[in-house]
Amino acid sequence: MAKDLDYEPSSPKTIKKSTGTKVFEAIAYILLAIGSLVCVLPFIIIVSGSFTDNSTILIKGYSLLPRDFTFSAYETIFRSPKDILQAYKMTFYYTIVGTGLGLMMITLTGYVISRKEFKYRNTVSFLIYFTSIFGGGMIPWYLMYANVLNLKGSTLAIWFPALMSPFLVILMRTFIVGAVPDAITESAKIDGAGHFTIFFRIVLPVLKPGLATVGLFLALGYWNDWYRSSMFSTNSSTWQLQFYLYDLLNATTAMKQMASNVSMKTADLPTESVKLAMAVVATGPVLLFYPFVQRFFVSGITVGAVKG
């Protein structure tokens, strides 16, 4: 069976690094360092901004290190920790259920449409792909869930619509085609293995990078989503984390605009720094979680073991 090996392609213990390799590696390090720096700079600005007093940001602009250090933005967000913890809890729930179920459905579908002996594989692929091009728009989609299925307010309406996506199905098919040569499944079939056996015993074990990729995309999709809460939630106890934060943001701007139409009290929120703190609060957990997924992308997998 396959097993993870900590394997570095360019540092075999037996062969000494050539000059060319060294130069190549040096260039790789430099480019990656530059890339990382460009990517991380705005993030540092965001983090330090989230610890800066709101009016300082407005007056002095952004900086790499926090000025007038304050927690007030986080205090605003965590004003009622019960709510935000509930939002965290719900988001974990949606992400776990959605990613689990979705990954299963996507992998099964990817397996089916990658089988050469399946006569309708092209038809099914087309029908799935077709949905990524044509759609009836948001309103019929909304009415489908809200009126026809009567799911408004239910948590099902929040995780169900994002279970699959044509992109991920097709990506998964590519991974399966790439990872499992036909010869292997053919020989397994001759040995009398059924589809479920082939799927679980042969395909899944060598599919780890694919599963990790698709799973990561699914999970990120769930983590970053706020739209379905906005559409279907009737009670703040079912809100996704991103919506909880996003709505806080929208409420500030909307209420300020609203105030030119209606006499109403506008809430006193430190907007700029709260925006930044929200980004940190919402992203933090993912960045902590990412290294766990990462091991599938930094260590190779030997397919060879299966061949034997």
């Binding site: 089916v112 009836g136 489908m144 169900f160």
Partner: peptide, 22 residues
């Protein structure tokens, strides 16, 4: 294996697709 997929795309995509008529 395709049944859940079928149900999903039917609900989420194909039935609402009638809305193209709008």
């Amino acid at each position: 294996m395709l049944i859940p997929t079928f149900i999903y795309f039917m609900i989420n995509n194909y039935l609402p697709m009638l809305g193209v008529y709008f």
